[in-house]
Design a protein around this nucleic acid. Structure first.
Lengths: 129, 129
DNA sequence: CGTTCGTGCAACCATTTGGTTGTACGTTAG
DNA sequence: CTAACGTACAACCAAATGGTTGCACGAACG
C-alpha cells in the first residue's frame, strides 16, 4: 500500500545501531504494543532512570519511536514504518542473494533448482567508488 | 521451508551492530553476489587493508559471512540465513504492532479497519524481570 | 633460492557508547 | 504554597569502535 521509502545510508547506520542493544529492542517491543511513559519504562529495568532516558533518546533520534507530551508525562510509542524500512533493506540483501543463485543455476545450466531467478534485482550494488 | 531458528539476544546485538556500518553493509552486498577475496574487497575502499580486514572479522564473528581458504587467498561469502534471522526478528516486531492495532480496533468496536487481527503473536514480549 | 602477495595480528590513538550521579525545571497533588 | 513526580540535561568515567602503522608468516611466482 504505502511505498515505505528506502533508508538513506546514514539513517541505516543509526537505525541498526539503535537495534544493536537488548534494552533498546525491549523498549521497542513494549512501545509497539502501546504508548509508555518514560518513567514507566524506566521502572522495568535495573539501570538508572537517566540511562533508560538515553536509550529512548537514541530510539527517538533515529526515528524508531516518537515522543508525545501528555501533561507532565512524555508518552513513547514505536514507529513501525521505520522498522519496516530496516526490514526492507534486509529484504534487498536477500533479493541480491537470490539473484546470485539464479546466475549460478544459469551457469550450471540444468534446470533451475526452484524457480530461483524471479527477476533482476532493481537495486544495484552500485556503491562503486 | 527451512525454519530459520530465532536469533539469541547476544547474537542479535552482534548482528545488528555489524549491520550498523555502511562499509560492512557494502561488503555484505558484494559477498552476497559472489565470494570475494579480502584483498579484492580491500581494494574497493579508501581505508587501509587492515581496516577492511577488521570489518570482515566483525561480519565473520557474528555469522553474517564465512571465510574459506583457497590457496593463499581467503574467500569471503555472505551467509544469507543469518540475514534472514535478523529479518525475522524485525518481522516479529511488526507482528507485535499489528496485534496492538487489532486490540485497538477491538476496543473501539466498529469493524476492524482491515482484518488486522490475524493471530495472537506467539512470541511474547515476556522479557519481564 | 629470494621476492612478492595475501593474510593475520598487535600496538596505538581519537571518538563514541553506555552507564553513573547530580542538578534544575515544569506539572500535578495536597 | 509546598511537596512530589516526571522529565531534561550536564559532567564524568570505563569500555568498545573504527581507524592507523608496523611486523611476521605461509603460499606462489620468478
Amino acid at each position: 500500500m504505502d511505498p515505505p521509502q528506502r533508508l538513506r545510508d546514514d539513517d541505516a547506520d543509526a537505525v541498526f545501531r539503535a537495534l544493536a542493544d537488548g534494552t533498546r529492542r525491549d523498549i521497542l517491543r513494549r512501545t509497539l504494543t502501546g504508548p509508555q511513559s518514560i518513567s514507566a519504562l524506566a521502572g522495568r529495568y535495573e539501570m538508572s532512570f537517566a540511562a533508560v532516558q538515553k536509550h529512548v533518546t537514541v530510539l527517538d533520534r533515529c526515528g524508531l519511536v516518537e515522543k508525545q507530551r501528555f501533561g507532565k508525562e512524555q508518552l513513547v510509542s514505536a514507529r513501525v514504518e521505520r522498522i519496516a524500512q530496516a526490514s526492507g533493506l534486509l529484504a534487498e540483501f536477500e533479493r541480491l542473494w537470490r539473484y546470485r543463485v539464479g546466475r549460478i543455476d544459469l551457469l550450471l545450466d540444468g534446470e533451475p533448482s526452484e524457480r530461483a531467478s524471479e527477476e533482476h534485482p532493481s537495486t544495484h550494488p552500485s556503491t562503486d567508488p
